[in-house]
Amino acid sequence: MLRYALLRIFGAIPTLLLVIALAFLMVHAAPGGPFDAERVLPPEIEENIARAYHLDESLPQQFIRYLGGLVRGDFGPSYRYRDYSVSELIGNALPVSMQLGVLAMLLAIVAGVAAGLTAALSKNSFIDRLVTGIAMTGISVPVFVVAPVMVLVFAVYLQWLPASWTGGTSISRLILPVVALALPQIAYIARLTRASMIGVLSSDYVRTARSQGLRTISIIRYHALKPAMLPLLSYMGPAIAGILTGSVVVEEIFGIPGIGQFFIRGALNRDYTLVLGIVIFYATLLILLNLVVDLLYGILDPRIRGR
């Protein structure tokens, strides 16, 4: 197991390098430069700026310099927010985004599993159809449609909750964004839980447990819950990715000063280093979390554990 963990960790390094290289190339391939928008500068000054930011070096040289910084946790200076480094910007925005992401993830798991289990246990009933129907809608309607509708209903008409970050208390302002962010994941998790629980309940070993006179509640608790939850664990990787990308949209809609918002600003302002830094930060986070999920799976599934 330890061997496997170490192998996986070292295996992740090439993937990460590839992601960094691709992101670096893509950002540099984009037309226009970070200082294009400002008024025309005399060539000497432009040269000076370029030298200060090492833009005069060749691309490989810049890449090596950038990698060197990364190893020290330095994502370089921001081109736009000139007094800040990219690391500082990410560091400042991270707590807000974390709060949002972690809460949305928890909500998605709790609500999704509860809905999925209820549906599975009353298969083909009205409740089952209701859950399946809502989940289908939740999956097909994108966040940028759901979020404004929620704002309209709960903030504008009912006036129960604030419409934006600046307008509410530290708790009330979180509710709408967290729900909007969690909704599609609730839907996915509910569907997944339902399908996997139904599969487990029709398995041979559950039939054996029934032949042994176990009540449904005991069957679920001692025989079905763990195998039914394992597919959910493997979905955690994609779910985290979904929450990360979703947060970019949600933060923009609700005006939340998180990483997502910086990302959009960065992209609009051609703030290369900021965009690059966020992409790499998120990619690393995703790879790490996926690794944790994989290792957990290995620990929980006895058939994999032995190897």
């Binding site: 039939r207 447990a209 032949s211 006179g213 763990k226």
Partner: peptide, 30 residues
Amino acid sequence: YRACRIAMVFQDPLTALNPYVRIGDQLRRI
């Protein structure tokens, strides 16, 4: 009646036993 009066042995013990639960725990649960 099940287990105490009437009990069953199935054909394929690999699928009929729960792969995620230790053998002893499956028996003890009964």
